[in-house]
Design a binder for these strands. Sequence first.
DNA 1: TCTGAAGCGAGAGCAGTGCTCTCGTTGCAG
DNA 2: CTGCAACGAGAGCACTGCTCTCGCTTCAGA
Lengths: 236, 236
Amino acid sequence: MASKIQGARQRARGEITTAIKDEARRHLADEGAARLSLRAVARELGMVSSALYRYFPSRDDLLTALITDAYGAVGAAAEAARAEAESVADSHLVRWRAVCRAVRAWALEHPHEYALIYGSPVPGYEAPPSTTQPASRVGLALLGILRDAHTSGALREPARTAAAPEAVLKDAERLVGDLGVQLPAAVAAEAVAAWSQLFGLVSFELFGQFTNVVAAREAFFDHAVERLADQVGLRR
Amino acid sequence: MASKIQGARQRARGEITTAIKDEARRHLADEGAARLSLRAVARELGMVSSALYRYFPSRDDLLTALITDAYGAVGAAAEAARAEAESVADSHLVRWRAVCRAVRAWALEHPHEYALIYGSPVPGYEAPPSTTQPASRVGLALLGILRDAHTSGALREPARTAAAPEAVLKDAERLVGDLGVQLPAAVAAEAVAAWSQLFGLVSFELFGQFTNVVAAREAFFDHAVERLADQVGLRR
DNA sequence: TCTGAAGCGAGAGCAGTGCTCTCGTTGCAG
DNA sequence: CTGCAACGAGAGCACTGCTCTCGCTTCAGA
């Protein structure tokens, strides 16, 4: 893109756009996605509600922007945790733990943004295809760790119970092909399961299902993460 | 249907209450919880919106009623599946599969009700204590299967990786005490993890995270359920 | 340098929402 | 039979998302 130097107008547009998103995020944390009010956001910014439509064509588009940003934020947190673990220890298990914990930590810090992306889909709206790429970053981080472990021979064969059925392996094959990750399909299949189960743990904690069930949240999570690591072939 | 309901006042009250809930459920299936409109429900029922407040003091109370019903419905589905499996086969693994599949099947049939209870918590509202009892029915069904397996000696010691840490075992101990289920704490701890991971699988499928990732949904789920069973000590 | 088009914010307005209050009516327990 | 409590209807309040029109400002091309 041969982008010119931004004029005052374009720069202002960018700044106002992020100001709107920031204010919206603040409102999100206050009362959740369903009660996010365009008018309230505009009011707080000293604008009139109609002016806001110059930046986001609808409320759902604002939400989509927040969703994309949130996926980016968890993804970045996961990647950062992985990179840091790589610089500290050689163990793939340590990296696996680091990414899982980073996801949980981010969720606890941004519960409403987490709910936005991993909770019920908002009203009547379909996630546009533009969100699928940032949505896959956490999964990619996990798969990347497994690939490293695999290439360095640190991976146990995951099939301890029955092997995954043909259809599942086929999906996994296609997935590693799409993502360009060098990994046996059997491992990838277990990784996808572990990935979704990881978010099951985080969601249940965050959405209140652990009330009166689990008190030692962090210890419980860490233990479950060890099990997931085992399930995926990262032997301890 | 705006059919007039006659009869004793109390009966009419009961019938109208369920009519409101039914209509609300229908609207729920159409456009999701966030867009559930009291006025629209009343309109469909041939009432005026204010009349509806005689039955539910607020929109959130209507949602709470729907939530409680939904928990009851999944719980009933899970219990029915368990009972039917018990009458058919002696295998505890078969019962475990049956309950897990019943949960998924119910979720696929009632996606919006599922989102209501296992998705993001609605707006600014806290689940009242009255929902925690029906919310635990699925978990109880799973724990019950494990207890039966345990008392009949069909349970493998689940600790294959490290044992659960002290704090986790203590929680599990308290849990089996509260529920009156005779089960080793180590097993209960794994069961809670498996329980939340089960819903991670269902939620990811239902909320669209498996788009472009998993195509053979049922096979994938079934395979993951086998892994969960293994994790929990139900050897195959 | 001038000018016309595009971008912008303000304001009014529409249809819809949750919720409250008041008003007649009606069922039923005492 | 009567008095009260429950009921449905309706008006109204404050709020929402969104549209449209109006002038002002910016900026690119002539």
